[in-house]
């Protein structure tokens, strides 16, 4: 029962989505399935929040290493929840100036907006900014000319990097822009590599992905692959 019901739900929802793609009269089925998923995901949010509390409260109560950070997580969690849920400090909507809760939670100047703009955004931007350093370290390793393939990769990267900078334009600027060898100018060469080699490789990967998606979907819909239910055999 525990396996059969999810299998049927998966099959019915999947088949409804497939049918709705081809039969216009059933177009609403796909939208209904998507709505049901959204409802489920919203309910699961409570599960997620509960799990977050459980994990961090346990860390604090057991005085595990880094329990202080857990207390910060919980304090921030409850502060944001309180500010957002109770519309703390929200300016009233101009249409209803006498109604205290008529304004938008995330309206400009509200505490929730302030938290988002001045606490959340800088933190996420900091994490994102670290990517630049990781790109440099990964490129350093990937571009070491260890074998023929790595040399080819290095050469291509060299062309692309130079072709997209002013240095590349200057280096091959002496080649006439409208002559027979204009294609050898670094800026043109980098466009050629991206449009021809890169696009061809990407499309090959995308075709494989599309076939893989179709095959995997079929196996899941027919219940051939049940490993997501923990019953692979």
């Amino acid at each position: 029962m525990r396996r059969t019901v999810p299998l049927w739900i998966t099959a019915i929802a999947g088949v409804a989505l497939v049918i709705s793609a081809f039969l216009p009269a059933t177009r609403g089925w796909g939208e209904d399935v998507a709505t049901w998923f959204s409802i489920l995901a919203a309910v699961a949010f409570v599960l997620g929040g509960g799990n977050l509390l459980k994990v961090h409260l346990r860390k604090i109560s057991d005085r595990q290493s880094g329990w202080g950070y857990s207390s910060i997580v919980l304090a921030c969690f409850f502060a944001t929840l309180w500010v957002g849920l109770f519309k703390v400090g929200v300016h009233p909507n101009p249409k209803y100036p006498d109604v205290a809760y008529s304004g938008q939670t995330q309206g400009i100047g509200s505490p929730f907006w302030w938290l988002y703009e001045y606490a959340f955004k800088p933190l996420t931007s900091t994490m994102f900014a670290m990517l630049a350093f990781y790109v440099a370290s990964a490129a350093f390793r990937a571009f070491r000319a260890k074998n023929v393939e790595a040399v080819l990769l290095l050469g291509t990267a060299f062309i692309i990097l130079l072709g997209r900078t002013f240095a590349g334009v200057v280096l091959t600027g002496w080649i006439p822009a409208d002559g027979a060898f204009a294609g050898l100018r670094l800026e043109n060469l980098s466009v050629y590599v991206m449009q021809v080699f890169n696009t061809a490789g990407n499309r090959a990967i995308i075709i494989g992905i599309a076939l893989g998606i179709a095959s995997t979907s079929l196996k899941i819909l027919l219940g051939i692959d049940r490993s997501y239910l923990g019953s692979g055999d």
Binding site: I205, I206, G208, I209, L211, G212, I213, S215, T216, L218, K219, I224, D225, S227, G232, D233
Partner: peptide, 26 residues
């Protein structure tokens, strides 16, 4: 695992004949 290999992984790891058959169909 690049693209299709990623989707083939579950079937490959299971080693079951019907799962491997799906890879052949792919």
């Amino acid at each position: 695992l690049i693209g299709e290999e990623f989707f083939a992984a579950s079937a490959y790891l299971s080693g079951q004949p019907d799962q491997l058959g799906s890879l052949k169909g792919q």
